[in-house]
Write a protein that binds this DNA or RNA. Structure first.
Lengths: 165, 165
DNA sequence: TTAATTCCTACTAAAATGGTTGCATTTAGT
DNA sequence: ACTAAATGCAACCATTTTAGTAGGAATTAA
Protein backbone atom coordinates (compact mmCIF):
# COMPACT_ATOMS: atom_id res chain seq x y z
CA UNK A 1 0.00 0.00 0.00
CA UNK A 2 2.40 2.62 -1.22
CA UNK A 3 2.38 5.44 -3.70
CA UNK A 4 4.90 5.16 -6.51
CA UNK A 5 7.79 7.60 -6.58
CA UNK A 6 6.26 8.89 -9.80
CA UNK A 7 3.27 10.25 -7.93
CA UNK A 8 5.43 11.77 -5.24
CA UNK A 9 7.81 13.51 -7.65
CA UNK A 10 5.05 14.30 -10.10
CA UNK A 11 2.92 16.09 -7.56
CA UNK A 12 5.87 18.20 -6.46
CA UNK A 13 6.39 19.12 -10.09
CA UNK A 14 2.74 20.05 -10.47
CA UNK A 15 2.95 22.43 -7.53
CA UNK A 16 5.89 24.14 -9.18
CA UNK A 17 4.01 24.39 -12.46
CA UNK A 18 1.06 25.79 -10.54
CA UNK A 19 3.24 28.56 -9.15
CA UNK A 20 4.36 29.42 -12.66
CA UNK A 21 0.93 29.27 -14.18
CA UNK A 22 -0.08 30.59 -16.66
CA UNK A 23 2.92 32.46 -17.99
CA UNK A 24 6.04 30.42 -17.75
CA UNK A 25 7.18 27.05 -18.98
CA UNK A 26 9.24 25.00 -16.58
CA UNK A 27 11.80 22.65 -18.10
CA UNK A 28 12.74 19.19 -16.91
CA UNK A 29 16.18 20.41 -15.93
CA UNK A 30 14.69 23.17 -13.79
CA UNK A 31 12.48 20.58 -12.11
CA UNK A 32 15.53 18.39 -11.63
CA UNK A 33 17.24 21.20 -9.70
CA UNK A 34 14.17 22.08 -7.66
CA UNK A 35 13.00 18.63 -6.73
CA UNK A 36 16.35 16.87 -6.64
CA UNK A 37 15.39 14.09 -8.99
CA UNK A 38 17.02 12.79 -12.14
CA UNK A 39 16.16 14.99 -15.10
CA UNK A 40 15.49 12.07 -17.36
CA UNK A 41 13.18 10.52 -14.84
CA UNK A 42 11.12 13.63 -14.22
CA UNK A 43 10.99 14.03 -18.00
CA UNK A 44 9.38 10.63 -18.23
CA UNK A 45 6.96 11.55 -15.48
CA UNK A 46 6.06 14.81 -17.20
CA UNK A 47 5.39 12.92 -20.38
CA UNK A 48 2.87 10.80 -18.50
CA UNK A 49 1.18 13.96 -17.24
CA UNK A 50 1.23 15.33 -20.75
CA UNK A 51 -0.40 12.16 -22.06
CA UNK A 52 -3.10 12.52 -19.44
CA UNK A 53 -3.83 16.05 -20.58
CA UNK A 54 -2.71 17.68 -17.35
CA UNK A 55 0.28 19.51 -18.78
CA UNK A 56 1.34 20.63 -22.24
CA UNK A 57 4.91 20.54 -23.45
CA UNK A 58 6.76 23.01 -25.61
CA UNK A 59 9.80 21.69 -27.39
CA UNK A 60 12.97 23.47 -28.27
CA UNK A 61 15.10 25.99 -26.46
CA UNK A 62 13.16 27.80 -23.75
CA UNK A 63 10.53 25.08 -23.90
CA UNK A 64 9.22 23.11 -20.98
CA UNK A 65 5.96 22.15 -19.33
CA UNK A 66 2.90 24.13 -18.38
CA UNK A 67 -0.44 23.24 -16.82
CA UNK A 68 -3.27 22.93 -19.33
CA UNK A 69 -5.78 24.52 -16.98
CA UNK A 70 -5.96 26.59 -13.85
CA UNK A 71 -4.49 25.05 -10.68
CA UNK A 72 -7.95 25.27 -9.16
CA UNK A 73 -9.23 23.02 -11.94
CA UNK A 74 -6.75 20.21 -11.37
CA UNK A 75 -7.38 17.85 -8.49
CA UNK A 76 -4.74 15.81 -6.74
CA UNK A 77 -6.71 12.80 -7.91
CA UNK A 78 -6.16 13.82 -11.53
CA UNK A 79 -2.43 13.82 -10.95
CA UNK A 80 -2.31 10.63 -8.92
CA UNK A 81 -4.45 8.66 -11.33
CA UNK A 82 -2.23 9.76 -14.20
CA UNK A 83 0.95 8.61 -12.49
CA UNK A 84 -0.04 5.63 -10.42
CA UNK A 85 0.39 2.61 -12.68
CA UNK A 86 -2.38 0.75 -10.98
CA UNK A 87 -5.11 2.44 -8.99
CA UNK A 88 -7.12 -0.77 -8.74
CA UNK A 89 -6.38 -1.47 -5.12
CA UNK A 90 -7.87 -4.98 -5.14
CA UNK A 91 -8.87 -7.61 -7.67
CA UNK A 92 -12.58 -7.27 -7.03
CA UNK A 93 -12.87 -3.51 -7.52
CA UNK A 94 -14.05 -3.62 -11.10
CA UNK A 95 -15.55 -7.09 -11.11
CA UNK A 96 -19.20 -7.40 -10.20
CA UNK A 97 -18.56 -10.38 -7.95
CA UNK A 98 -20.74 -10.24 -4.87
CA UNK A 99 -19.90 -13.64 -3.53
CA UNK A 100 -17.81 -12.53 -0.64
CA UNK A 101 -17.97 -9.60 1.70
CA UNK A 102 -14.53 -8.28 0.82
CA UNK A 103 -15.87 -6.63 -2.33
CA UNK A 104 -17.90 -4.17 -0.27
CA UNK A 105 -14.85 -3.33 1.79
CA UNK A 106 -12.41 -2.68 -1.01
CA UNK A 107 -14.90 -0.74 -3.07
CA UNK A 108 -15.59 1.49 -0.09
CA UNK A 109 -11.88 2.02 0.38
CA UNK A 110 -11.43 2.77 -3.30
CA UNK A 111 -14.20 5.36 -3.16
CA UNK A 112 -12.71 6.86 -0.03
CA UNK A 113 -9.27 7.23 -1.55
CA UNK A 114 -10.58 8.91 -4.66
CA UNK A 115 -12.85 11.07 -2.56
CA UNK A 116 -9.95 12.41 -0.53
CA UNK A 117 -7.79 12.95 -3.58
CA UNK A 118 -10.51 14.75 -5.48
CA UNK A 119 -11.37 16.99 -2.54
CA UNK A 120 -8.10 18.86 -3.04
CA UNK A 121 -6.90 20.91 -6.00
CA UNK A 122 -3.39 22.16 -6.67
CA UNK A 123 -4.64 25.63 -5.82
CA UNK A 124 -6.43 24.75 -2.60
CA UNK A 125 -3.43 22.89 -1.26
CA UNK A 126 -1.03 25.73 -2.04
CA UNK A 127 -3.43 28.18 -0.40
CA UNK A 128 -3.65 26.07 2.74
CA UNK A 129 0.08 25.68 2.83
CA UNK A 130 0.71 29.39 2.51
CA UNK A 131 -1.94 30.19 5.06
CA UNK A 132 -0.06 27.96 7.48
CA UNK A 133 2.82 30.43 7.17
CA UNK A 134 4.91 28.32 4.87
CA UNK A 135 6.27 29.87 1.69
CA UNK A 136 4.81 28.26 -1.40
CA UNK A 137 8.11 27.76 -3.08
CA UNK A 138 9.08 25.08 -0.65
CA UNK A 139 12.81 25.60 -0.59
CA UNK A 140 13.19 27.07 2.87
CA UNK A 141 13.38 25.45 6.27
CA UNK A 142 10.72 26.37 8.75
CA UNK A 143 11.29 29.85 10.11
CA UNK A 144 13.94 30.70 7.54
CA UNK A 145 13.75 32.95 4.59
CA UNK A 146 13.39 31.42 1.18
CA UNK A 147 16.62 30.18 -0.37
CA UNK A 148 15.40 29.33 -3.82
CA UNK A 149 17.34 30.84 -6.66
CA UNK A 150 16.75 28.89 -9.81
CA UNK A 151 13.09 29.53 -10.28
CA UNK A 152 10.90 32.54 -10.84
CA UNK A 153 8.44 32.97 -8.01
CA UNK A 154 5.30 34.81 -7.23
CA UNK A 155 5.32 37.94 -5.16
CA UNK A 156 5.38 37.59 -1.42
CA UNK A 157 7.70 34.67 -1.05
CA UNK A 158 10.85 36.74 -0.72
CA UNK A 159 12.68 35.13 -3.59
CA UNK A 160 14.82 37.00 -6.07
CA UNK A 161 15.30 35.44 -9.43
CA UNK A 162 18.77 34.06 -10.02
CA UNK A 163 19.94 35.17 -6.64
CA UNK A 164 19.86 33.57 -3.24
CA UNK A 165 18.42 35.71 -0.48
CA UNK B 1 -1.31 1.69 -5.10
CA UNK B 2 -2.42 -1.83 -4.55
CA UNK B 3 -3.28 -4.03 -1.63
CA UNK B 4 -1.12 -7.10 -1.20
CA UNK B 5 -2.66 -10.49 -1.81
CA UNK B 6 -2.09 -11.13 1.88
CA UNK B 7 -4.65 -8.52 2.81
CA UNK B 8 -7.11 -9.79 0.29
CA UNK B 9 -6.84 -13.44 1.33
CA UNK B 10 -6.47 -12.56 4.98
CA UNK B 11 -9.64 -10.56 5.12
CA UNK B 12 -11.58 -13.38 3.49
CA UNK B 13 -10.19 -15.69 6.14
CA UNK B 14 -11.23 -13.29 8.88
CA UNK B 15 -14.79 -13.24 7.64
CA UNK B 16 -14.87 -17.01 7.80
CA UNK B 17 -13.45 -16.97 11.32
CA UNK B 18 -16.08 -14.38 12.22
CA UNK B 19 -18.83 -16.73 11.10
CA UNK B 20 -17.39 -19.46 13.29
CA UNK B 21 -16.85 -17.24 16.28
CA UNK B 22 -16.66 -18.00 19.16
CA UNK B 23 -17.01 -21.77 19.14
CA UNK B 24 -15.09 -23.35 16.34
CA UNK B 25 -11.50 -23.34 15.21
CA UNK B 26 -10.90 -23.15 11.47
CA UNK B 27 -7.79 -24.84 10.13
CA UNK B 28 -5.53 -23.64 7.36
CA UNK B 29 -6.60 -26.53 5.18
CA UNK B 30 -10.26 -25.61 5.62
CA UNK B 31 -9.42 -22.05 4.65
CA UNK B 32 -7.51 -23.40 1.67
CA UNK B 33 -10.64 -25.14 0.44
CA UNK B 34 -12.96 -22.21 1.11
CA UNK B 35 -10.84 -19.42 -0.25
CA UNK B 36 -9.00 -21.34 -2.95
CA UNK B 37 -5.54 -20.36 -1.84
CA UNK B 38 -2.46 -22.42 -1.09
CA UNK B 39 -2.66 -23.90 2.40
CA UNK B 40 0.93 -23.07 3.15
CA UNK B 41 0.40 -19.48 2.12
CA UNK B 42 -2.76 -18.90 4.14
CA UNK B 43 -0.95 -20.53 7.05
CA UNK B 44 1.72 -17.87 6.79
CA UNK B 45 -0.92 -15.17 6.60
CA UNK B 46 -2.71 -16.54 9.65
CA UNK B 47 0.54 -16.51 11.55
CA UNK B 48 0.87 -12.79 10.82
CA UNK B 49 -2.64 -12.25 12.14
CA UNK B 50 -1.75 -14.32 15.17
CA UNK B 51 1.34 -12.20 15.76
CA UNK B 52 -0.80 -9.09 15.58
CA UNK B 53 -3.12 -10.46 18.24
CA UNK B 54 -6.13 -10.73 15.96
CA UNK B 55 -6.40 -14.50 16.00
CA UNK B 56 -5.22 -17.26 18.30
CA UNK B 57 -3.98 -20.59 17.06
CA UNK B 58 -4.51 -24.04 18.51
CA UNK B 59 -2.02 -26.65 17.47
CA UNK B 60 -2.51 -30.34 16.97
CA UNK B 61 -5.34 -32.37 15.51
CA UNK B 62 -8.60 -30.43 15.42
CA UNK B 63 -6.64 -27.24 15.94
CA UNK B 64 -6.88 -24.13 13.85
CA UNK B 65 -7.50 -20.42 14.17
CA UNK B 66 -10.05 -18.40 16.06
CA UNK B 67 -10.65 -14.68 16.52
CA UNK B 68 -9.34 -13.31 19.81
CA UNK B 69 -12.30 -10.98 20.22
CA UNK B 70 -15.79 -10.39 18.94
CA UNK B 71 -16.13 -9.64 15.22
CA UNK B 72 -17.64 -6.31 16.21
CA UNK B 73 -14.41 -5.49 18.02
CA UNK B 74 -12.11 -6.05 15.05
CA UNK B 75 -11.92 -3.37 12.41
CA UNK B 76 -10.90 -3.91 8.82
CA UNK B 77 -8.05 -1.54 9.58
CA UNK B 78 -6.75 -3.90 12.25
CA UNK B 79 -6.57 -6.67 9.69
CA UNK B 80 -5.13 -4.58 6.88
CA UNK B 81 -2.45 -3.02 9.04
CA UNK B 82 -1.40 -6.46 10.26
CA UNK B 83 -1.03 -7.83 6.75
CA UNK B 84 0.07 -4.91 4.64
CA UNK B 85 3.86 -4.88 4.82
CA UNK B 86 4.01 -1.15 4.42
CA UNK B 87 1.13 1.16 5.22
CA UNK B 88 3.30 4.25 4.88
CA UNK B 89 1.90 5.43 1.59
CA UNK B 90 4.55 8.12 1.03
CA UNK B 91 7.98 9.04 2.32
CA UNK B 92 6.82 12.17 4.12
CA UNK B 93 4.04 10.60 6.17
CA UNK B 94 6.00 10.15 9.35
CA UNK B 95 8.62 12.85 8.80
CA UNK B 96 7.86 16.31 10.11
CA UNK B 97 9.06 17.96 6.92
CA UNK B 98 6.88 20.92 6.04
CA UNK B 99 8.96 22.25 3.19
CA UNK B 100 6.72 21.25 0.39
CA UNK B 101 2.99 21.07 0.00
CA UNK B 102 2.89 17.37 -0.77
CA UNK B 103 3.18 16.48 2.90
CA UNK B 104 -0.26 17.88 3.61
CA UNK B 105 -1.71 15.90 0.76
CA UNK B 106 -0.29 12.52 1.62
CA UNK B 107 -1.02 12.87 5.30
CA UNK B 108 -4.62 13.68 4.48
CA UNK B 109 -4.80 10.65 2.25
CA UNK B 110 -3.24 8.48 4.91
CA UNK B 111 -5.79 9.65 7.47
CA UNK B 112 -8.59 9.09 5.00
CA UNK B 113 -7.55 5.53 4.26
CA UNK B 114 -7.30 4.59 7.90
CA UNK B 115 -10.56 6.37 8.60
CA UNK B 116 -12.41 4.29 6.03
CA UNK B 117 -10.80 1.06 7.17
CA UNK B 118 -11.56 1.72 10.81
CA UNK B 119 -15.15 2.67 10.13
CA UNK B 120 -15.93 -0.97 9.36
CA UNK B 121 -15.76 -4.02 11.60
CA UNK B 122 -15.91 -7.65 10.56
CA UNK B 123 -19.38 -7.75 12.07
CA UNK B 124 -20.74 -4.62 10.45
CA UNK B 125 -19.59 -5.70 7.03
CA UNK B 126 -21.13 -9.14 7.35
CA UNK B 127 -24.38 -7.58 8.54
CA UNK B 128 -24.49 -5.20 5.59
CA UNK B 129 -23.70 -8.01 3.22
CA UNK B 130 -26.44 -10.23 4.58
CA UNK B 131 -28.91 -7.39 4.63
CA UNK B 132 -28.24 -6.96 0.93
CA UNK B 133 -29.65 -10.47 0.48
CA UNK B 134 -26.33 -12.19 0.06
CA UNK B 135 -25.57 -15.26 2.12
CA UNK B 136 -22.70 -14.64 4.50
CA UNK B 137 -20.89 -17.83 3.62
CA UNK B 138 -19.89 -16.48 0.26
CA UNK B 139 -19.81 -19.72 -1.68
CA UNK B 140 -22.86 -19.23 -3.87
CA UNK B 141 -23.37 -17.36 -7.10
CA UNK B 142 -25.84 -14.54 -7.07
CA UNK B 143 -29.40 -15.85 -7.01
CA UNK B 144 -28.32 -19.40 -6.30
CA UNK B 145 -28.63 -21.39 -3.14
CA UNK B 146 -25.55 -21.84 -1.07
CA UNK B 147 -23.24 -24.60 -2.24
CA UNK B 148 -20.83 -24.69 0.64
CA UNK B 149 -20.23 -28.06 2.19
CA UNK B 150 -16.96 -28.09 4.02
CA UNK B 151 -17.71 -25.58 6.68
CA UNK B 152 -20.19 -25.26 9.51
CA UNK B 153 -22.43 -22.25 9.03
CA UNK B 154 -24.81 -20.15 10.99
CA UNK B 155 -28.51 -20.60 10.73
CA UNK B 156 -30.30 -18.99 7.86
CA UNK B 157 -27.84 -19.51 5.08
CA UNK B 158 -29.28 -22.79 3.89
CA UNK B 159 -26.11 -24.80 4.32
CA UNK B 160 -25.97 -28.32 5.68
CA UNK B 161 -22.77 -29.42 7.25
CA UNK B 162 -20.79 -31.90 5.20
CA UNK B 163 -23.40 -31.96 2.49
CA UNK B 164 -23.94 -29.84 -0.58
CA UNK B 165 -27.42 -28.45 -0.96
C1' DT C 1 1.49 -44.39 17.38
C1' DT C 2 -0.50 -41.77 13.94
C1' DA C 3 -2.47 -38.14 11.50
C1' DA C 4 -3.64 -33.51 11.45
C1' DT C 5 -2.42 -29.55 12.85
C1' DT C 6 0.58 -24.99 13.78
C1' DC C 7 5.44 -22.94 13.88
C1' DC C 8 9.56 -21.50 11.73
C1' DT C 9 13.23 -20.66 8.44
C1' DA C 10 14.92 -20.53 4.15
C1' DC C 11 14.40 -20.36 -0.58
C1' DT C 12 12.82 -18.99 -5.33
C1' DA C 13 10.62 -17.37 -9.63
C1' DA C 14 8.18 -13.64 -11.43
C1' DA C 15 6.73 -9.03 -11.42
C1' DA C 16 7.09 -4.32 -10.33
C1' DT C 17 9.84 -0.34 -9.36
C1' DG C 18 12.95 3.15 -10.10
C1' DG C 19 15.48 4.62 -12.78
C1' DT C 20 19.31 5.04 -17.09
C1' DT C 21 20.86 5.24 -21.97
C1' DG C 22 20.82 6.71 -26.41
C1' DC C 23 19.09 8.88 -30.10
C1' DA C 24 15.64 11.52 -32.88
C1' DT C 25 13.16 15.76 -33.30
C1' DT C 26 12.02 20.55 -32.41
C1' DT C 27 13.06 25.35 -31.78
C1' DA C 28 15.12 30.03 -30.35
C1' DG C 29 18.99 32.63 -30.90
C1' DT C 30 23.26 34.02 -33.30
C1' DA D 1 23.25 27.43 -41.35
C1' DC D 2 24.70 26.16 -36.90
C1' DT D 3 24.32 25.32 -32.10
C1' DA D 4 22.49 24.49 -27.69
C1' DA D 5 18.64 23.48 -25.05
C1' DA D 6 14.68 21.42 -24.91
C1' DT D 7 10.98 17.31 -25.43
C1' DG D 8 9.69 12.46 -27.45
C1' DC D 9 10.35 7.76 -27.50
C1' DA D 10 11.87 3.07 -26.98
C1' DA D 11 14.73 -0.08 -25.02
C1' DC D 12 17.30 -1.56 -21.33
C1' DC D 13 18.77 -2.78 -16.53
C1' DA D 14 19.56 -3.52 -11.55
C1' DT D 15 17.24 -3.86 -7.36
C1' DT D 16 13.40 -4.66 -4.53
C1' DT D 17 9.09 -6.56 -3.63
C1' DT D 18 5.69 -9.95 -4.10
C1' DA D 19 3.64 -14.21 -4.02
C1' DG D 20 4.22 -18.03 -3.05
C1' DT D 21 6.93 -22.98 -2.12
C1' DA D 22 9.60 -26.47 0.48
C1' DG D 23 10.80 -29.00 4.29
C1' DG D 24 10.97 -30.11 8.71
C1' DA D 25 10.15 -29.55 13.96
C1' DA D 26 6.81 -29.38 17.66
C1' DT D 27 2.08 -30.17 19.39
C1' DT D 28 -2.07 -32.66 20.30
C1' DA D 29 -6.52 -35.53 19.95
C1' DA D 30 -7.88 -39.96 19.07
Amino acid sequence: MRLSSKSQYGLKACFILAQNYPNRCVSASALEREIAVSGKYIEKIMRMLSGAGIVTAERGVSGGYKLTRMPSEITIGDVARALEDNMEIADCITSTCKKCATGVVWRKLYAGINGVLDSMTLQSVLDDHEEAGICKCGSQEEGERCKCAAMPREAGCGCVRGQAN
